[in-house]
C-alpha cells in the first residue's frame, strides 16, 4: 500500500475522545450482554460451596446425561463430517446444473427454528406420524428415545462442516488433484494425500463448531426427548429439569460444564483461525 502523507493519515483518524468513548461504550455493552451471564453461571453454581458443586456434577442422572450428550455429539460430528467432505467434493470439484440450489438446500436447517426441527421428526416417526404406525408394529422406537435425539442433533448441525469446506475447496481449485490423478494416483490416494492436507484446518474448524452446537442443542432435542430421566435427557435438558425443580445450584453447576465447554470452543476456534490464517488456508 502507498504510504500517505502523515497529515492526511491524521485526517482520517478519529480524535482520542471519540476513540476512547467508543471503546468504553462497546466494552460496557459487551460486559453487560456477554460477560455478565458468563460470570452469573459460575457464581450461582458455587453459591453453596465447592462440595455442593461437585455433588451436583457427580449425580448419576447428570452422568447419564453427559454420556448421552457425548454420544449424540460424536455421531452428529461423524455423520456431518462425512457428508461435508462428500458434498464439498461434489460441489467444489465439479460443475453441474442445480449446483447453487444444492448449496442453498444445505443451508436450510439454519433457517428452521429449533423447535420446528424437532417437530418434523415427531411428524415423521412419532405415534401420530407418517411412519409411526409401521415403526410401532415392528417394535422400533425413534421419538422419545435415543435415535430421535441423535437425528434432531444431526439436523440442527447439518450445514456446519459442509459450509466451511465448500468455499475452501472452491478457492483451492482442482489443479493439484488433476496433477495427482495424471501422475497415477487413484481417487482415494488423491483425497487422502492431496485434498485432505489442504483442507484440514477448515475441517477442524467445522468440527469444532458442529460439536459445540451439538452438545448445546436444546429446542430440537427438547421436542423429541420426552424428558425420561437417565435415558433421554441430554446435558442442556438436565439443566432445564433441575432449574424447573428450583434446584438452582445443581442447575447452574451442570450449566457451568457447558459454559466451560463454550470457552474451550472459543479458544480452539481462535487457535485454528490463527493457524489457518498463517498458512493462508482460510475460507472467505
Amino acid at each position: 500500500m502507498i504510504r500517505s502523507h502523515p497529515e492526511l493519515r491524521r485526517s482520517v483518524q478519529d480524535p482520542a475522545w471519540v476513540r476512547g468513548g467508543a471503546i468504553a461504550l462497546v466494552l460496557l455493552f459487551l460486559g453487560l450482554v456477554l460477560f455478565m451471564p458468563l460470570i452469573a453461571v459460575f457464581r450461582e453454581a458455587l453459591r453453596k460451596g465447592a462440595d455442593a458443586y461437585w455433588a451436583a456434577l457427580r449425580n448419576p442422572e447428570t452422568l447419564d446425561a453427559v454420556r448421552l450428550t457425548l454420544l449424540a455429539a460424536l455421531l452428529a460430528v461423524i455423520f456431518n463430517a462425512v457428508f461435508g467432505l462428500m458434498a464439498s467434493w461434489a460441489i467444489a470439484k465439479f460443475r453441474f446444473p442445480g449446483r447453487h440450489i444444492l448449496i442453498s438446500l444445505i443451508d436450510l436447517p439454519f433457517a428452521v427454528s429449533p423447535v420446528v426441527s424437532g417437530l418434523v421428526y415427531v411428524l415423521l416417526f412419532g405415534a401420530q406420524g407418517v411412519l409411526g404406525p409401521w415403526l410401532q408394529a415392528h417394535g422400533f422406537r425413534i421419538i422419545f428415545a435415543v435415535p430421535g435425539i441423535v437425528l434432531a442433533t444431526v439436523f440442527v448441525t447439518f450445514p456446519f462442516i459442509a459450509r466451511e469446506l465448500i468455499p475452501l475447496m472452491e478457492a483451492q481449485g482442482t489443479d493439484e488433484e488433476e496433477s495427482a490423478v495424471v501422475l497415477g494416483a487413484n481417487g482415494w490416494q488423491t483425497f487422502w494425500r492431496v485434498t485432505l492436507p489442504n483442507i484440514k484446518w477448515g475441517l477442524l474448524y467445522g468440527i469444532i463448531l458442529c460439536n459445540a452446537r451439538a452438545m448445546g442443542e436444546f429446542g430440537a432435542v427438547s421436542v423429541v426427548s420426552g424428558h425420561i430421566r437417565g435415558q433421554t435427557t441430554t446435558v442442556p435438558l438436565q439443566v432445564e429439569m433441575l432449574y424447573n425443580e428450583y434446584n438452582f445450584v445443581a442447575a447452574f453447576a451442570v450449566a457451568s460444564m457447558l459454559a466451560i465447554l463454550a470457552l474451550i470452543t472459543l479458544v480452539l476456534k481462535s487457535v485454528v483461525e490463527w493457524c489457518a490464517k498463517r498458512k493462508g488456508m482460510v475460507a472467505g
Binding site: L34, P37, L38, A40, V41, E44, L209, A212, R213, M215, G216, E217, F218, G219, V235, P236, L237, V239, E240, Y243, A251, F252, A255, L258, A259, L261, A262, L263, T265, L266, K269
Partner: peptide, 13 residues
Amino acid sequence: LPFALPTAVAGIA
C-alpha cells in the same frame, strides 16, 4: 460466545 454457549445456559443466567 452466543454461538458457543448453549441457549439454555444463557437463558437461566
